[in-house]
C-alpha cells in the first residue's frame, strides 16, 4: 500500500491562508502599506494608540493572528513547491526546514506578541 502523505496538514494551512490572503490582503496592503504612510485620507490612521487598542482586543488579536500566521503558511508552502519546480528537489531538505520553519516560528512569535499585548 502506498505511504500516506502528511501533505494534508500543510495543504490545509496553505488553503486557509490562500483564502485569507485573497479576501483580506489587498485591502490590508492598501491600508498599512500605502494609505497610512502617505497620510491618506488623513494622518494618524495607524496611530500607536489605535493599533495598540486593536491588537489588545480579542477580535483584533484574532484577526492579526489569522492574517499573519496563515499568510506565512500559505506563502512559504508555495515558495517551497516553486523551488521544487525550479529544480530544487523536495525531501527533508534544508529548504523544507527553512520554509516551514519560518512559517512555524512566525506563527509562534505572532501568538506570543499578541498574547502579551492582550
Amino acid at each position: 500500500m502506498p505511504k500516506r502523505s502528511n501533505e494534508p496538514v500543510f495543504w490545509a494551512l496553505f488553503g486557509a491562508g490562500g483564502v485569507v490572503a485573497a479576501f483580506v490582503l489587498p485591502a490590508l496592503i492598501v491600508v498599512t502599506g500605502l494609505a497610512a504612510p502617505l497620510g491618506l485620507p488623513s494622518p494618524g490612521v495607524l496611530s500607536y494608540e489605535r493599533v495598540s487598542a486593536f491588537a489588545a482586543s480579542l477580535p483584533g488579536a484574532a484577526f492579526l493572528f489569522v492574517v499573519i500566521s496563515l499568510s506565512l503558511w500559505h506563502g512559504f508552502h508555495r515558495i517551497y513547491h516553486s523551488l521544487h519546480e525550479l529544480g530544487v528537489h523536495r525531501g527533508l531538505s534544508v529548504v523544507r526546514v527553512l520554509c516551514y520553519g519560518t512559517a512555524l516560528a512566525g506563527t509562534a512569535l505572532t501568538a506570543y506578541l499578541l498574547v502579551t499585548a492582550i
Binding site: M1, P2, K3, R4, S5
Partner: peptide, 13 residues
C-alpha cells in the same frame, strides 16, 4: 490510499 499518497493528489499544484 492511492489518492492519499504523495504520488496521488499531493504531487499536484
Amino acid at each position: 490510499p492511492i489518492v492519499n499518497a504523495q504520488e496521488g493528489v499531493w504531487a499536484c499544484t
